[in-house]
Design a protein around this nucleic acid. Sequence first.
DNA 1: ATCCAGGACAAGT
DNA 2: ACTTGTCATGGA
Length: 304
Amino acid sequence: MPIQSPFQTQFEIGPYDLDATLSSGQVFRWAPHPSGIKQHWHGPIGDYWIEAYSDGDSLFLGCQVSPVDWDWARQFFQIGVDIESMKSTFPKDDIMTRAVKFCPDLFILKQDPWECLASFILSSNKQITQIKQMVSNLCETYGKPLYGHNFKRRFPSSNCISQLSEKQLRDLKLGYRAPMLLESSKMVENGIIDLKNIESMDDPEARAELMKLKGVGPKIADCVLLFGFNRLAAFPIDTWIQKVLIRLYFQDKVRPRAELERFCGSYFGQFGGYAQQFLFHWIRTGNPELSKLARKAPIKVANL
DNA sequence: ATCCAGGACAAGT
DNA sequence: ACTTGTCATGGA
């Protein structure tokens, strides 16, 4: 058992693919542990820097300092959530079946809403590696210290970011996203948007509310709903999912976004967010030929 | 080099 | 309602 931290806990959750879950573009601050051991990661939860390891049977967590309790970690990793019953609600088509089979133990995490929102405002038109870099710049420059690590820092609060200048944010290489993040942080601080209040709204209301923020359109709103508010029906349609939909579900026939949204909203069901994450992870990492999607000959689903 | 990245937004059909 | 150009930055 690779966890070396003095303070540890263990959850018997069954198979839990940390490698896939933590690398699938939900969170941007977790990294493989320097041990190099598979399923061994470290990253922040709340005010703590945490070490995590999954052996296919249990999830082990460790920390260098003594946390009060592990409830926040339990929520972050969604311990106790039965993903098998959710998978059983997915449509039984070849594409969905292959995506789930490729990586069956993928989870959707429950993040802090503000961190999730701010991170995904930075995500627009950026690769995941670059999003990680921007988020790292932001945290290590302006975040408060974390417990359990010498130099890693917490994600800066909305209050903190709202008091920075656009130039300070641009200096972190945020590009044109800098004014968007700044404006949205001010809207949260002013109470124009109340993240706490969004918890009590239904999905369409919450989505519309999030889209009032600068830099938040339909895709980012869905990501925040799914990863920050645990609204498991939210179905983010990004460039990768568009390729899955157009290429595999619509036989290379281009469709307007509104039609894709309508299709996804009904076809994938009440846990569409999970379905989306399986598709996303599969298309990105599961099939090299398919991930290129070089717009050549149509790919037959049966030959995947 | 050239294209494109977990897009949003404004402007133009 | 749908399509196009623009926005920084840096991987691949």
